[in-house]
Protein backbone atom coordinates (compact mmCIF):
# COMPACT_ATOMS: atom_id res chain seq x y z
CA UNK A 1 0.00 0.00 0.00
CA UNK A 2 1.49 3.35 -0.97
CA UNK A 3 1.97 5.83 1.84
CA UNK A 4 -0.91 8.23 2.39
CA UNK A 5 -0.08 11.92 2.73
CA UNK A 6 -2.47 14.36 4.35
CA UNK A 7 -2.47 17.01 1.63
CA UNK A 8 -4.68 19.99 1.01
CA UNK A 9 -7.67 19.26 -1.17
CA UNK A 10 -10.08 19.23 -2.76
CA UNK A 11 -9.47 15.53 -2.32
CA UNK A 12 -12.80 13.83 -2.84
CA UNK A 13 -16.44 14.04 -1.85
CA UNK A 14 -15.74 11.59 0.96
CA UNK A 15 -12.03 11.74 1.81
CA UNK A 16 -10.82 8.85 3.97
CA UNK A 17 -9.97 9.32 7.63
CA UNK A 18 -6.18 9.64 7.74
CA UNK A 19 -6.11 7.11 10.60
CA UNK A 20 -7.66 4.49 8.31
CA UNK A 21 -4.87 5.13 5.83
CA UNK A 22 -2.19 4.35 8.37
CA UNK A 23 -1.39 7.82 9.74
CA UNK A 24 -0.58 7.54 13.45
CA UNK A 25 -0.59 10.24 16.07
CA UNK A 26 2.61 11.84 17.36
CA UNK A 27 4.06 11.26 20.82
CA UNK A 28 4.56 14.15 23.25
CA UNK A 29 7.17 16.57 21.90
CA UNK A 30 6.31 15.63 18.34
CA UNK A 31 3.86 16.84 15.71
CA UNK A 32 2.66 15.77 12.29
CA UNK A 33 3.35 17.39 8.94
CA UNK A 34 1.15 15.95 6.21
CA UNK A 35 0.94 12.64 8.06
CA UNK A 36 4.65 12.31 8.92
CA UNK A 37 5.82 12.41 12.52
CA UNK A 38 8.31 15.22 13.12
CA UNK A 39 9.81 17.07 16.07
CA UNK A 40 7.39 19.67 17.37
CA UNK A 41 9.81 22.54 16.70
CA UNK A 42 9.85 21.61 13.02
CA UNK A 43 6.06 21.55 12.92
CA UNK A 44 6.05 24.99 14.58
CA UNK A 45 8.30 26.42 11.90
CA UNK A 46 6.27 24.89 9.10
CA UNK A 47 3.01 26.23 10.58
CA UNK A 48 4.57 29.68 10.98
CA UNK A 49 5.72 29.67 7.34
CA UNK A 50 2.26 28.68 6.16
CA UNK A 51 0.69 31.49 8.18
CA UNK A 52 3.20 34.08 6.98
CA UNK A 53 2.83 33.20 3.32
CA UNK A 54 -0.97 32.84 3.35
CA UNK A 55 -3.31 35.26 1.64
CA UNK A 56 -6.04 34.94 4.28
CA UNK A 57 -4.65 33.21 7.37
CA UNK A 58 -7.43 32.41 9.81
CA UNK A 59 -7.81 31.13 13.36
CA UNK A 60 -10.92 29.15 14.25
CA UNK A 61 -11.33 29.20 18.05
CA UNK A 62 -13.84 26.62 19.28
CA UNK A 63 -16.00 26.37 22.40
CA UNK A 64 -13.19 25.15 24.64
CA UNK A 65 -11.47 28.52 24.32
CA UNK A 66 -14.38 30.81 23.49
CA UNK A 67 -15.99 30.27 26.87
CA UNK A 68 -14.47 31.19 30.18
CA UNK A 69 -15.06 27.83 31.83
CA UNK A 70 -11.74 27.57 33.65
CA UNK A 71 -8.54 29.49 34.17
CA UNK A 72 -6.62 27.64 31.44
CA UNK A 73 -9.33 28.47 28.91
CA UNK A 74 -8.98 32.15 29.79
CA UNK A 75 -5.18 31.99 29.41
CA UNK A 76 -5.48 30.14 26.12
CA UNK A 77 -7.89 32.79 24.84
CA UNK A 78 -5.32 35.47 25.65
CA UNK A 79 -2.56 33.47 23.90
CA UNK A 80 -4.70 32.96 20.79
CA UNK A 81 -5.45 36.66 20.67
CA UNK A 82 -1.71 37.39 20.80
CA UNK A 83 -1.16 35.04 17.85
CA UNK A 84 -4.01 36.68 15.98
CA UNK A 85 -2.60 40.17 16.62
CA UNK A 86 0.79 39.11 15.26
CA UNK A 87 -0.81 37.60 12.14
CA UNK A 88 -2.94 40.69 11.67
CA UNK A 89 0.04 43.01 11.97
CA UNK A 90 1.76 41.00 9.25
CA UNK A 91 -1.26 40.62 6.98
CA UNK A 92 -4.33 42.78 7.35
CA UNK A 93 -6.46 40.01 5.80
CA UNK A 94 -5.92 37.76 8.84
CA UNK A 95 -9.15 36.62 10.44
CA UNK A 96 -10.36 34.93 13.57
CA UNK A 97 -13.75 33.38 13.16
CA UNK A 98 -15.39 31.51 16.02
CA UNK A 99 -16.93 28.05 16.00
CA UNK A 100 -19.47 28.76 18.76
CA UNK A 101 -21.69 25.77 18.15
CA UNK A 102 -21.34 22.22 16.89
CA UNK A 103 -25.02 21.69 16.27
CA UNK A 104 -26.18 21.84 12.69
CA UNK A 105 -28.00 25.12 12.34
CA UNK A 106 -30.94 25.65 10.06
CA UNK A 107 -31.63 27.39 7.75
CA UNK A 108 -27.91 28.08 7.60
CA UNK A 109 -25.00 29.79 9.31
CA UNK A 110 -23.68 33.20 8.35
CA UNK A 111 -20.27 32.27 6.88
CA UNK A 112 -18.97 35.81 7.30
CA UNK A 113 -19.01 35.54 11.09
CA UNK A 114 -18.94 31.90 12.13
CA UNK A 115 -17.89 28.40 11.15
CA UNK A 116 -19.89 25.26 11.80
CA UNK A 117 -18.18 21.85 11.87
CA UNK A 118 -20.92 20.25 9.80
CA UNK A 119 -20.32 22.51 6.82
CA UNK A 120 -17.01 24.29 7.43
CA UNK A 121 -16.48 24.61 3.67
CA UNK A 122 -19.10 27.40 3.55
CA UNK A 123 -16.97 29.68 5.74
CA UNK A 124 -13.75 28.73 3.97
CA UNK A 125 -15.18 29.39 0.52
CA UNK A 126 -16.91 32.59 1.52
CA UNK A 127 -13.79 34.13 3.08
CA UNK A 128 -11.36 32.53 0.60
CA UNK A 129 -9.34 31.11 3.50
CA UNK A 130 -6.16 29.40 2.36
CA UNK A 131 -4.56 28.57 5.75
CA UNK A 132 -6.46 27.97 8.96
CA UNK A 133 -5.85 26.72 12.46
CA UNK A 134 -8.35 24.94 14.70
CA UNK A 135 -7.93 25.55 18.42
CA UNK A 136 -10.27 24.70 21.27
CA UNK A 137 -12.44 22.40 19.17
CA UNK A 138 -13.39 19.02 20.66
CA UNK A 139 -11.54 16.23 18.88
CA UNK A 140 -14.48 14.42 17.27
CA UNK A 141 -15.79 17.67 15.81
CA UNK A 142 -12.34 18.78 14.70
CA UNK A 143 -11.70 15.52 12.87
CA UNK A 144 -15.10 15.60 11.17
CA UNK A 145 -14.59 19.17 10.10
CA UNK A 146 -10.96 18.79 9.01
CA UNK A 147 -11.96 15.92 6.78
CA UNK A 148 -14.74 17.95 5.17
CA UNK A 149 -12.29 20.80 4.56
CA UNK A 150 -9.79 18.42 2.99
CA UNK A 151 -12.54 16.92 0.90
CA UNK A 152 -14.01 20.06 -0.56
CA UNK A 153 -11.58 22.98 -0.32
CA UNK A 154 -7.96 23.84 -1.02
CA UNK A 155 -7.40 25.21 2.46
CA UNK A 156 -4.28 24.18 4.37
CA UNK A 157 -5.28 23.04 7.87
CA UNK A 158 -3.39 23.25 11.16
CA UNK A 159 -4.68 21.85 14.45
CA UNK A 160 -3.60 23.04 17.90
CA UNK A 161 -5.03 20.09 19.83
CA UNK A 162 -5.14 19.87 23.62
CA UNK A 163 -5.14 16.08 23.47
CA UNK A 164 -3.20 13.72 21.21
CA UNK A 165 -3.38 15.66 17.92
CA UNK A 166 -5.46 15.49 14.75
CA UNK A 167 -4.14 13.31 12.01
CA UNK A 168 -6.76 14.77 9.64
CA UNK A 169 -5.03 18.16 9.68
CA UNK A 170 -2.02 18.88 7.50
CA UNK A 171 -0.05 20.04 10.53
CA UNK A 172 -0.95 19.05 14.05
CA UNK A 173 0.31 19.88 17.50
CA UNK A 174 -0.65 17.99 20.61
CA UNK A 175 -0.99 18.82 24.34
CA UNK A 176 -1.77 22.46 23.56
CA UNK A 177 -1.21 24.87 26.44
CA UNK A 178 -1.17 28.66 26.53
CA UNK A 179 2.64 28.43 26.57
CA UNK A 180 2.67 26.26 23.44
CA UNK A 181 0.46 28.73 21.61
CA UNK A 182 2.90 31.47 22.68
CA UNK A 183 5.81 29.45 21.25
CA UNK A 184 3.98 29.34 17.91
CA UNK A 185 3.43 33.09 18.10
CA UNK A 186 7.12 33.64 18.88
CA UNK A 187 8.08 31.40 15.97
CA UNK A 188 5.88 33.45 13.63
CA UNK A 189 7.49 36.65 14.90
CA UNK A 190 10.99 35.24 14.59
CA UNK A 191 10.51 34.02 11.01
CA UNK A 192 8.79 37.23 10.06
CA UNK A 193 11.72 39.25 11.39
CA UNK A 194 14.23 37.04 9.58
CA UNK A 195 12.27 37.32 6.34
CA UNK A 196 12.88 33.58 5.86
CA UNK A 197 9.43 32.17 5.12
Amino acid sequence: MSKYSVLKGPEAFLPPAAACEGVVLPDPGQGLIQGDIVQETLAMEEAARKFLSAKNPTLFPGPLVLWNWNETAARKAAAIKRLYDVLKSHNSNALHIPMPDYRPKYPKIDPAIEINPNHPNLTIWYNKIDVCMFVGVHCHMANLSLKIIRGGTDCYTIAMCAQAGHEDAMITFRDATPEKIDILTNTVERLKASGDY
Binding site: N68, W69, P100
Partner: peptide
Protein backbone atom coordinates in the same frame (compact mmCIF):
# COMPACT_ATOMS: atom_id res chain seq x y z
CA UNK B 1 -22.72 30.98 35.96
CA UNK B 2 -19.10 31.88 35.21
CA UNK B 3 -19.08 29.00 32.78
CA UNK B 4 -21.57 30.75 30.58
CA UNK B 5 -19.39 33.81 30.10
CA UNK B 6 -17.48 34.47 26.89
CA UNK B 7 -13.73 34.98 27.14
CA UNK B 8 -13.19 38.72 26.73
CA UNK B 9 -10.69 38.24 23.89
CA UNK B 10 -13.44 36.74 21.76
CA UNK B 11 -16.38 38.78 22.91
CA UNK B 12 -16.43 41.01 19.85
CA UNK B 13 -16.21 38.18 17.33
CA UNK B 14 -18.89 36.00 18.88
CA UNK B 15 -22.05 36.19 16.78
CA UNK B 16 -24.48 38.65 18.31
CA UNK B 17 -26.98 35.97 19.25
CA UNK B 18 -24.54 34.24 21.59
CA UNK B 19 -23.67 37.51 23.25
Amino acid sequence: KEKIKINQEFYDIMPLEYR
